[in-house]
Amino acid sequence: MCRWLAYSGEPLKPAVLILDAQHSLVAQSLNSPLGVETVNGDGFGFGWYPEGSAAGSVPALFHSIEPAWHDENLRELTNNIASPLFFGHVRAAAGPPIQQTNCHPFRYENWLFMHNGFLDGFSLMKRDLVLAVDESLFPLIHGTTDSEVMFYLAITFGLADDPIGAMAKTVQFIEQTGEAKGVHFPMQGTLALSDGATLWAFRYSTAHRTRSLFHSVEIPALREMYPDAERLQVFGDKAKVVVSEPLNDVPGAFVEVPESTVAILTDDGYSHQPFGTPAD
């Protein structure tokens, strides 16, 4: 469906990952070997927390309906800012129209969210899902994607207080709604979520056959594995990236996030937790 990456660590020029890596996000927009669609040219989005911003700051966004591979504004922007936490997403539209309001990531206050996948049977479930969004949030849904509705459901279900729990409640509600409509496997996807400090990356589908998701090995460990790799000097010790597919072919540089798992990235490193609905 789409490809995405999320970075957390010392401030970094986003172009290092979005443009310059061997299998950068822009390269994946043209050719994603692990993706369902090889080409992801139906727009893109970039969201970032500015360097030096205080906790709870609102992130910045840049969306375009142009293919990422020929957008000069993306090149200019990502080469001239530095950010300690940023999201990048290239889109392969699966039905909703190509328009800026349908480009990921989505933002609410200090939160960023993006999704690779789909809600099967969304047209059947849409009315029930949208009406479950808190009334105060309803006017903020500007696009037509299932992903944006999912994000506002998670906010409704308590994202600010318990991000993992809110996402579990969201998935449970989607699956219960789908079951009532005769949809057997409504949830499919990898999700990225951040409040500007912590990064959560979810891999889950009702059928337990979820889109690919990987994260990098910690930089100090990589330096031990590859002491002569000059490329690693660009990154600080806390640098971490979660990706739809690896950004290079270096053996051991990326590990796959297991099925039905949430990876949690903080300054202290990585941790994994099982993820499913509360009934699991």
Results as ranks from 00 to 15, higher is better:
G41D: 14
G41S: 12
F44L: 07
F44G: 11
F46W: 10
F46T: 12
F46A: 15
G47L: 08
W48I: 05
W48T: 01
E51D: 15
A55F: 10
A55N: 08
G56A: 09
V58H: 11
H63Y: 14
E66R: 11
P67H: 09
H70E: 08
N73A: 13
N73I: 11
N73D: 06
E76V: 09
E76S: 14
T78D: 05
I81L: 11
A82C: 07
A82R: 05
A82V: 10
A82Q: 13
P84G: 03
F87L: 01
F87E: 01
G88T: 09
V90S: 04
P96I: 14
I98W: 06
Q99V: 15
Q99T: 15
Q100D: 11
T101G: 02
T101C: 08
C103T: 10
H104M: 00
E109L: 10
E109W: 03
F113R: 02
H115E: 13
N116L: 03
G117M: 00
L119T: 14
G121R: 12
F122N: 04
S123L: 14
M125H: 07
M125C: 13
K126V: 08
D128E: 15
D128R: 15
L129H: 08
L129D: 06
V130P: 02
L131T: 03
L131Y: 06
D134S: 15
E135S: 13
S136I: 12
S136K: 15
P139W: 02
P139F: 05
H142G: 11
G143R: 00
T144I: 10
S147D: 10
V149M: 09
M150Q: 14
M150H: 10
F151H: 06
Y152V: 04
L153S: 02
L153G: 00
A154T: 01
T156V: 04
F157L: 13
F157G: 00
G158A: 05
L159A: 05
L159I: 09
G165W: 00
A166H: 02
M167F: 06
M167P: 04
A168T: 01
K169C: 00
V171R: 05
Q172K: 14
F173M: 04
